[in-house]
């Protein structure tokens, strides 16, 4: 059978979600941000909530996420997405409100906002992209940077005596009674993508049921910041990130 006989409208089994725009993403080749955008778009499309979803974008590489997901967005100052999401969710309790934040945004400058929003149990979903580095600004150390990991500001590797310990903020957030669902996922294989999709679906459903804060960490790559080709970055993540940031649910109530 010829390839051109297979490529026909009636045989289409998978294509880009309609919730994604046709804009070319500005992300580096192989960046996890694109994978997570795709999964969010698919969940929104499958749940039929495109006109009921309001997202808050961070400062970081995903600051321009509103160019790619065709939903309502509000841009927040660095780290302040959970505060903005609090206001939106309280003013529009019928909407599905989520923040999309990097680890520099959420676990560094925005630590206070995320902790208190989760502790208040704001009815929002948080998508936390942990690539262990500040991607946008050129690969500086983040609170989540692994011990020994080389970054622009730790050229000889992160030293605990000098730079402190890598922060497992998701474990801290799981302790807060305001959160109903806390999980750590990834998106590097088809199986991981399927699991992440289930997790995002559950989180959005929780928001629909007014259950409090759902928090999804996605262990991610920043191949530019890590100075590795994309395929190598995924391998490095499995080898080095997963032992310290193990995948799985921490809380599901």
């Amino acid at each position: 059978m010829d390839v051109k006989d297979i490529i026909k409208e009636e045989n289409l089994v998978y294509s880009k979600s309609k919730v994604l725009t046709d804009n070319i993403m500005h992300y580096c080749p192989g960046c996890t941000h694109g994978v997570v955008h795709k999964i969010i778009a698919e969940v929104i499309e499958e749940m039929g909530i495109q006109d009921k979803t309001i997202a808050v974008s961070p400062v970081g590489c995903s600051v321009l996420a509103y160019n790619y997901l065709d939903i309502d967005w509000q841009e927040a100052a660095h780290g302040r997405a959970p505060a903005i999401a609090t206001a939106i969710s309280r003013l529009h309790p019928e909407k599905y409100v989520f923040t999309y934040q990097g680890d520099g945004d959420l676990a560094s400058i925005g630590t206070a906002e995320i902790m208190h929003a989760c502790n208040r149990g704001e009815n929002i979903t948080v998508i936390f992209i942990n690539n262990a580095i500040y991607g946008m600004t050129g690969g500086q150390m983040a609170p989540t940077t692994l011990e020994g990991m080389k970054t622009a500001t730790t050229p000889y590797g992160r030293r605990v005596d000098l730079n402190g310990y890598p922060l497992k903020i998701t474990e801290l957030i799981a302790q807060l009674p305001g959160t109903c669902y806390v999980t750590r996922q990834s998106g590097h294989t088809p199986a991981a993508v399927r699991k992440l999709k289930k997790a995002i679906t559950k989180a959005f459903e929780n928001t629909g049921k007014n259950k409090g804060t759902s928090f999804i960490e996605v262990v991610s790559t920043c191949n530019s910041g890590w100075k590795m080709p994309p395929v190598k970055a995924n391998e490095w993540m499995v080898e080095n990130m997963f032992p310290f940031y193990p995948l799985g649910d921490m809380k599901d109530e």
């Binding site: 059978m1 006989d5 297979i6 490529i7 026909k8 045989n11 289409l12 089994v13 998978y14 294509s15 880009k16 979600s17 994604l20 070319i24 993403m25 992300y27 080749p29 192989g30 960046c31 996890t32 941000h33 694109g34 994978v35 955008h37 795709k38 778009a41 998106g187 590097h188 294989t189 088809p190 993508v193 399927r194």
Partner: peptide
């Protein structure tokens, strides 16, 4: 599988 992991969502898949 290829389309699912594509960060730029630029692969369409057909099957018979």
């Amino acid at each position: 599988n290829c389309a699912m992991v594509c960060p730029d969502s630029i692969i369409s898949v057909y099957k018979v």
